[in-house]
Design a protein around this nucleic acid. Structure first.
Lengths: 194, 194
DNA sequence: CGAATTCACATACCGTCGGTATGTGAAGCT
DNA sequence: AGCTTCACATACCGACGGTATGTGAATTCG
């Protein structure tokens, strides 16, 4: 059997199984023994591919964030108007982030395990970047009042992260439209009323 | 020496030292040996007062959140007008939450260690409750457009949490006024424009 | 006022965890 | 064919969270 192929296959199995377990039980509650057991390899294999448990988790977070970023971008790209792209992107983020798997890994354990600085850098590299860019475009076009982009993007990003966590726990089916409505109101208020 | 008094003193020392260490190094990086060493007691004492490491952390989080809640309420209470109370409370929260000690314990490790549900309940019991109440009052008074309070409070709470984390890392001194400005704009847009 | 009891810890120990050092056998190269 | 590489497997370690038991001073009771 081809060696390079086998290597990739082992690595893929480790990341996939780790992702499932981390999502289900949380980072701290998952042992390396469980992960290598699920991936049908040994701890030696894991440490041949990753230098620590946190490094493996880092790769998992990267994968989740990239997927979220892609789905947000895809939703935005179905529109041509920059404003509609922003709204669609925000709603897509809210929808994707309701997935409990995404939540635990990306929003809860991510910052605590990797440190907020590192987590933030990864967030910026994936989904948050789209938000910043979209807002910048809208400000340039005069649709949104001229103001520093970074703080605004941070506020909105935090609002949506929290909203997603809250939504996933909510039992009332009316909560989703209610949040969407509140978010839309918030976005709408950004439009320059000159 | 009085026994009850000694008991309280030991417990207080454990909570205080644990808080300092958790804030400085994060929950996972602090061992019970370090905590009991700093408090000048033994592990037996710790487990006589708390049933687990997480239970001790829970008490620490409770303490931090209560302090934050009190300071937010105090800032709001310097005003009579409900709207000004809201704005003052939000700004106070932003100021208090910039403290790295508050951040790591309350915003980063809290949800990951205790679980988001439990963390959320504690948050609601302390500072978030004030936000919800203030918004409710304003809606009742017709200052803010009539809408479900919960989603709105969640969005604002998340926005401020994230902003505080971002601010604490920022090096640019202009970032604080920039965020305050963006937040004010966001709050202002809530006012009913009928 | 002394014996009995309670209680606030201290001591000693355990299983499990993340991490490491070393062994091994098949695949690739010469 | 034989040497080398490399992708793991095996065996082991110190440290950690947690527990079971011991102990001595403070309190209670007859």
């Amino acid at each position: 059997m081809d060696r390079a192929r086998q290597r990739l296959e082992t690595r893929r199995a480790l990341v996939t199984e780790a992702r499932t377990l981390f999502a289900r039980h949380g980072y701290a509650a998952v042992s390396l023994a469980q992960i290598v057991g699920a991936a049908a390899v040994t701890k030696g294999a894991l440490y041949h591919h990753f230098e620590s448990k946190a490094a493996l988790f880092h790769v998992v977070v990267e994968q989740v964030q990239q997927e979220v970023g892609e789905r947000v971008a895809a939703a935005a790209d179905t529109y041509d108007d920059p404003w509609e792209q922003l709204v669609a992107g925000c709603r897509a983020f809210l929808a994707v982030s309701r997935d409990p798997e995404v939540q635990r890994i990306m929003l809860v354990d991510g910052p605590a395990v990797l440190g907020w600085n590192e987590w933030r850098a990864m967030d910026e590299a994936s989904s948050a970047r789209h938000l910043t860019e979209a807002l910048g475009t809208l400000i340039e076009a005069g649709v949104v009042a001229r103001q520093p982009v970074e703080p605004l993007a941070r506020l909105l990003s935090g609002a949506m992260n929290e909203a997603a966590l809250w939504l996933a726990r909510s039992t009332d089916p009316d909560d989703l439209p209610a949040v969407t409505e509140a978010l839309s109101r918030m976005l709408e208020s950004l439009r320059d009323q000159r």
